[in-house]
């Protein structure tokens, strides 16, 4: 009997601590730059108590960051802009999160808010919100720039090893930077006679995921070509001039040069 009581009280303690924990958040520390379900919950909860006014999109940007800091300041927590254990517990205890409601609205792409105290019907407007991005993009580039570059990379180098594809994307970006070439991605790609894939229309083939990944790597700074401005296939190149350029390295079928 005594054992049973001990066991029972132990169970009670466990379940009580469990109830106090922020069980809906995952156990991870959430910080600026993060993306995903934890961020959606964080934004929703901050909005519920009136700290966050932006769109609930699961993207931990600066707006969410300031909201979180203000919350931390007002509730006497350490102001570090990180959603760690204590901050999350406090947030859970003072706000409500209706996962179904928030998720269903994000899926429907409707404009909505999640302020506590406001009736649910008034939180949704029938206006469509901007489609949420799949993930954070590198600064200064739109989804369309990336698609255009991915088209070019796929058309020019789809049979090449991965680093060869990143290198082709890097050459496009090196040209944008260089003074002797047009100053935009589209200007460089569509410069007449600059790329064979543009001239023969192969640029309009649908790019695969690898080409896209290669482009994003190049935009983030990776450059296997080591600052090249030109490349050519030594087997098919007819131009004498291109052979006169200083050569940097060979990747797959391409020689990269300055």
């Amino acid at each position: 009997m005594k054992r049973l009581i001990i066991l029972f009280s132990l169970l009670m303690i466990i379940s009580m601590t469990a109830a106090n924990q922020s069980f809906s958040f995952s156990g991870q520390v959430i910080q600026r730059g993060a993306f995903g379900d934890d961020v959606i919950e964080l934004q929703s909860r901050l909005q519920y108590i009136g700290y966050y006014e932006g769109q609930i999109d699961g993207d931990f940007g600066w707006g969410t960051y300031w909201a979180l800091r203000n919350f931390q300041k007002d509730y006497g927590l350490e102001v570090d802009g990180l959603a760690g254990g204590t901050t999350k517990d406090k947030l859970v205890s003072v706000s409500d999160y209706d996962k179904e409601y928030v998720k269903s609205n994000i899926d429907k792409g409707k404009k909505f808010t999640h302020y506590g105290g406001v009736p649910k019907e008034q939180q949704v407007s029938n206006e469509d919100s901007k489609p949420t991005k799949s993930s954070a993009l590198p600064a200064g580039y739109s989804e369309n720039d990336i698609n255009l570059m991915a088209n070019a990379v796929h058309g020019e180098a789809r049979g090449e090893p991965y680093e060869g594809q990143v290198a082709v994307a890097a050459v496009i970006l090196n040209r944008v930077e260089d003074e002797a070439f047009p100053n935009s991605v589209s200007g460089v790609i569509f410069e007449p006679l600059a790329f064979t894939a543009v001239a023969d229309g192969q640029i309009w083939l649908t790019p695969n995921e690898t080409a896209k990944r290669a482009v994003v790597d190049a935009i983030n700074g990776w450059d296997p070509s080591e600052n090249a401005l030109y490349y050519f296939n030594p087997v098919t190149a007819t131009s004498k001039w291109i052979w006169s350029r200083p050569q940097i390295k060979k990747i797959g079928a391409h020689i990269f040069c300055l």
Partner: peptide, 14 residues
């Protein structure tokens, strides 16, 4: 392993 070609600004190994 491959060595950089002659025209590279700085020699390197890939």
């Amino acid at each position: 392993v491959s060595e950089s070609l002659k025209g590279a600004n700085y020699p390197f190994y890939s």
